[in-house]
């Protein structure tokens, strides 16, 4: 099993995400050859104009969705940590949907089985949402890299003035 530190997932930067839904359209196109957010593996949430983010599978360690499935339809990929849905076993009961803290699993509007981000495993250039995001808000990252970035952002904010002076003098 791929180690948790090496597991890459798609994450949206809340400061950059504007809630434009391009990721939803591109995901539904890539996976289902149609434009329909209901068939997207990544979904946008806009609570109010200031609060926007798109959310998809975080590839959890010991994923609660896998544990919740009474029919053993869900497994976690040894290779990259994505959740694999066995469409023959899944009956769309929704236990995994309830178990997921992020709302990353959805019930397919027509097929009546659940679906979840597979990091566009068939695409050589990786997740298409990341490729298309006009704001470059989406990234394929590990948790460690996210932590690094958060620390750098926080430090920049803290030393905003000092950095400005430093760049002006150089």
């Amino acid at each position: 099993m791929v180690k948790i530190h090496e597991r890459k997932f798609v994450s949206a930067d809340p400061d950059k995400c504007v809630g434009c839904q391009v990721c939803e359209y591109i995901c539904s196109w890539t996976k289902e050859k149609t434009f329909n957010p209901l068939k997207s593996r990544i979904r946008v949430v806009r609570l109010n104009p200031l609060v926007n983010i798109s959310i998809t599978c975080r590839l959890c360690e010991d994923p609660p969705c896998v544990a919740a499935c009474p029919r053993d339809a869900l497994t976690q990929s040894e290779e990259n940590g994505t959740i694999i849905v066995d469409a023959d076993k899944c009956n769309g009961c929704g236990w995994c949907i309830e178990a997921c803290d992020y709302g990353a699993i959805s019930l397919h509007p027509e097929k009546k089985v659940v679906f979840v981000c597979d990091l566009c495993k068939d695409k050589p250039d990786g997740p298409q949402c990341v490729k298309w995001c006009p704001e470059e808000a989406l990234e394929l990252v590990t948790a460690d890299i996210l932590a690094q970035k958060a620390r750098i952002t926080a430090t920049k904010k803290l030393f905003q003035e000092a950095l400005k002076e430093a760049t002006q003098t150089t």
């Binding site: 504007v18 809630g19 434009c20 839904q21 359209y25 104009p49 926007n52 704001e135």
Partner: peptide, 19 residues
Amino acid sequence: VAKIIGCSSCAMRCEHTCV
């Protein structure tokens, strides 16, 4: 301006939300 957000499917963003 607190945040600039966008409409569905837009690749620019224009909505200057002020607080």
